[in-house]
Amino acid sequence: MPENNNMKNTFYLLIGGLLVLAACSGKNPIEKKKEELSQLRTQYKEVKDKIVALEKELSEIDSTYDDGAERNASLVSSIPVKPARFVHTIEVRGTVASRTNVSMSAEMGGTVEEIKVREGDYVREGDVMIRLNTSLVANQIKEVKTAIELAKVVYERQKNLWEQNIGTEIQYLQAKNNYETLESRLGQLNAQYGKMVIKAPFNGIVDEVSTKEGQMAAPGYPLIRVVNPGDGYITADISEAYVGQLKKGDSVKIYVPSLDKEYGSTITAVGQSIKLANRTFMLEAKLPAAAKDLKPNMLVVLHLADYVNENAISVPTRIVLEDLKGHYVYLAQKRDDDYIAQKRYVNLGKSDRNTTEIVSGLQEGDVVIDRGSMLVAQGALIKIQ
């Protein structure tokens, strides 16, 4: 009978193993390894707890056993618990922007006659950068100026005659109207002439020239872009869930993935309305003076502090473990001349990067096990490095 039972047990174990393999066959190798590691850790904890219990029983009935257990003590490191500043941050994607980043186009259609700048050139406000063919408008201006000279002479003579009560009023008014109409026409032509010349709107650098001499320029078609790198800032959209948690003057860290660099800055503006399209509000941060390599439209990651506790109890996240009862850490508890691992259940607050806030369960003066916390069990003998 015992032999039959052993055969049955062996059969059931084989069936169970096949079922586990079948369940895992549809998973990728990484998930399978994670599951295997989790199962091994669970088994290790169960075995470790049994070993500790047996060691405790043996130490009670065999006074010489402690010497042997001492040699098997787990080597760990420890951290004293003390209040410290805890900051929880959120990560938000943002972009580099510039208030003086302008793409300019022609207001009047015409042929590009001359391009006076190239990419990378520095320009001052008012400098001529592109000139369209102005010959037609220039000829019209010349004709109108000639007509104005005659109209002015006629108007002045009619005015003198009218003041001497010679001639009719209608002759005087016609001469005056003709002269003023030509003056207005000249003003319109001069305005058109000005629109055929594209000038720098501010001091900056020519970033892009998207036309060539001889090409036609249509109104609204971009011809040239001018950027002032010294007027940059960071902008980002923040979820409305963080309304009231961020304010002007708060510190912010700016990480630039493409450069693998991080800069410190401050919030300069917080939007006062929620965008209906994505339920976010606008946030702006100052572009640090040291961030000279940042260009408009570059992607950045903002680390914003949404929660600060000046006297928080916190521990490395890696030492916070969990079982069916909840989260816990191991303390290094003094026992006679030795130290043992003492399980302590805790309530967690927020976690930031590699640190977790402990709301309750720990107090100042406690000593938590750091390195080696995964290798101990409740009551296990430990040796602090």
Rank of each mutant, 00 (worst) to 15 (best):
residue 4 N to P: 04
residue 4 N to W: 10
residue 9 N to Y: 04
residue 10 T to F: 14
residue 12 Y to P: 00
residue 13 L to Y: 14
residue 21 L to K: 07
residue 25 S to H: 09
residue 27 K to E: 13
residue 28 N to R: 06
residue 30 I to M: 09
residue 31 E to V: 14
residue 32 K to V: 15
residue 35 E to I: 13
residue 41 R to F: 13
residue 49 D to R: 13
residue 49 D to Y: 10
residue 61 I to E: 07
residue 64 T to W: 00
residue 64 T to K: 04
residue 71 R to C: 03
residue 72 N to H: 03
residue 74 S to I: 08
residue 80 P to C: 06
residue 85 R to W: 02
residue 90 I to N: 13
residue 100 T to R: 02
residue 101 N to P: 04
residue 103 S to P: 00
residue 111 T to D: 08
residue 118 R to N: 10
residue 119 E to Q: 11
residue 120 G to S: 09
residue 120 G to P: 08
residue 125 E to W: 01
residue 127 D to K: 09
residue 128 V to T: 12
residue 129 M to K: 02
residue 129 M to R: 02
residue 131 R to S: 05
residue 133 N to S: 14
residue 133 N to H: 11
residue 136 L to H: 11
residue 136 L to Y: 15
residue 139 N to F: 00
residue 140 Q to Y: 05
residue 148 I to N: 07
residue 149 E to F: 08
residue 153 V to K: 10
residue 154 V to K: 10
residue 167 G to M: 11
residue 170 I to F: 04
residue 171 Q to F: 07
residue 171 Q to P: 06
residue 172 Y to E: 01
residue 191 A to Y: 02
residue 194 G to Q: 12
residue 195 K to C: 02
residue 209 V to P: 02
residue 210 S to A: 07
residue 212 K to D: 14
residue 212 K to E: 14
residue 213 E to L: 07
residue 221 Y to M: 13
residue 223 L to R: 00
residue 228 N to K: 11
residue 230 G to E: 09
residue 235 T to G: 05
residue 243 V to D: 02
residue 247 K to Q: 15
residue 253 K to T: 08
residue 254 I to S: 10
residue 255 Y to D: 04
residue 262 E to V: 06
residue 263 Y to G: 03
residue 268 T to F: 01
residue 269 A to Y: 15
residue 270 V to K: 06
residue 276 L to Q: 14
residue 281 F to I: 08
residue 281 F to W: 13
residue 285 A to K: 08
residue 294 L to W: 01
residue 294 L to D: 03
residue 296 P to A: 01
residue 297 N to A: 03
residue 299 L to F: 05
residue 305 A to C: 09
residue 305 A to L: 07
residue 306 D to K: 10
residue 306 D to W: 10
residue 307 Y to G: 01
residue 308 V to L: 12
residue 308 V to H: 10
residue 309 N to K: 12
residue 316 P to T: 11
residue 317 T to P: 03
residue 321 L to N: 06
residue 321 L to P: 00
residue 323 D to C: 04
residue 326 G to S: 00
residue 327 H to L: 01
residue 328 Y to L: 09
residue 331 L to I: 03
residue 334 K to C: 03
residue 335 R to K: 10
residue 343 K to M: 11
residue 344 R to A: 14
residue 344 R to Y: 07
residue 345 Y to H: 09
residue 347 N to P: 02
residue 349 G to C: 11
residue 349 G to P: 09
residue 349 G to T: 10
residue 351 S to L: 01
residue 352 D to R: 07
residue 357 E to N: 00
residue 358 I to Y: 03
residue 358 I to R: 07
residue 361 G to T: 05
residue 362 L to S: 13
residue 367 V to P: 02
residue 367 V to H: 03
residue 367 V to F: 05
residue 378 Q to S: 14
residue 382 I to E: 02
residue 384 I to A: 10
